[in-house]
Write a protein that binds this DNA or RNA. Structure first.
Lengths: 187, 187
DNA sequence: GGGCAATGAGTCAACATGTCTCGTAGTATG
DNA sequence: CATACTACGAGACATGTTGACTCATTGCCC
């Protein structure tokens, strides 16, 4: 794994990451093994070892491909913007791509006490963005008493994950309205 | 596995279930294998096979030992009762016993599409109990417009799981108050 | 005490894992 | 175009796990 610019290196890396993502979505993090990824990507098993000597690293890279594109660029008034953002997240959580990552992160938080950096980073990103959005609205006099950022994130996102993953149901708009009501005291 | 009353049968079954629960809490559902359970329980590997020919059945029995003791016997006024119940749940979710089951259920809901009966049963139990509690309060004139039961459950429990599992933090009382506010329109 | 069933220990093939080696083929230089 | 380089695929190998069996032993019930 020397030359990061070698087309062969880039090609096989991409195909392995794609295979790992598909396996994660279809069969869960336990299926992201050297053997399964090699089969699916059409590469040799040794190649997977050369790129990621430990299976956990491969899973981590497969998840951390894209930064979660939520809560960027808040707009006033905050309520309709927040509603639209939550709507997008709820819809994305109905798809396996995001739902698989969410559940895998919960699993890793509980039992893979290593590899906390990616999870911590994503969570802090959400916290910061939400905090910035609510601070903006507070300055504009839209609301009072926002909660502390991590609690805010938990109130807004927790029910969406619970509903889509455990209950395997859809998220009605009235649910999002109630969550927004709970997130702050609106004027 | 013939005589369910044989003390030997009961004894080894209990020790295996205890071992399975400990393994689930300490290392996750992936660790609940015939071999690991046999080692930990101090029984032969073949004995585990005789009781549960498939590892998934063992995991299922290990989780379904106790019915979740939440939201039983609602009391009026509903708000303080609901707050106390949520407080108990949040505190229990800080312990590995309940948190492990919650995360495992999410994992199974996503990827082990079989074995839905236990999960569905527990979820419906929570829904029904919460519905009964809110119906009681509605009759007493305490509130208007309760949400439909599954959405109610998601709003109340989702944030607790998100906060304790993903964020690995504690649940402040103010968070519970906000969730209760979101659950219904109180008078 | 005697019949009986559950158990513990062991064997066995099949498979997955982690680590090598080696010949091949694609790549970047000159 | 020719050469040195290097990532690759295929395979070998020891090791550990899994699932399924056999069989002697031991605890249990009548």
């Amino acid at each position: 794994m020397a030359d990061t610019q070698d087309p062969r290196f880039v090609r096989s890396r991409e195909s392995m990451l794609t295979a790992a993502r598909e396996l994660l979505q279809d069969e869960g993090p336990a299926a992201v093994t050297h053997q399964r990824v090699a089969q699916r990507a059409g590469v040799g098993r040794a190649t997977v070892y050369r790129h990621w000597s430990h299976p956990g690293d491969l899973l981590q890279d497969a998840m951390s491909a894209a930064d979660v594109p939520f809560f960027r660029q808040p707009r006033l008034p905050l309520r309709p913007w927040l509603l639209a953002e939550l709507r997008r997240i709820a819809d994305e959580l109905a798809l396996p791509a995001l739902a698989s990552i969410a559940v895998t992160l919960m699993y890793q938080a509980r039992w893979q006490t290593t590899a906390t950096s990616y999870r911590d980073h994503q969570l802090q990103l959400l916290d910061h963005r939400l905090q910035a959005a609510f601070a903006l609205a507070a300055d504009a006099g839209e609301l009072d008493e926002p909660l502390q950022p991590p609690v805010l994130t938990a109130i807004l996102l927790g029910p969406l994950i619970f509903r889509t993953t455990l209950q395997e149901g859809t998220v009605p708009d009235v649910m999002l309205e109630r969550l927004i009501d709970a997130a702050a005291k609106w004027r």
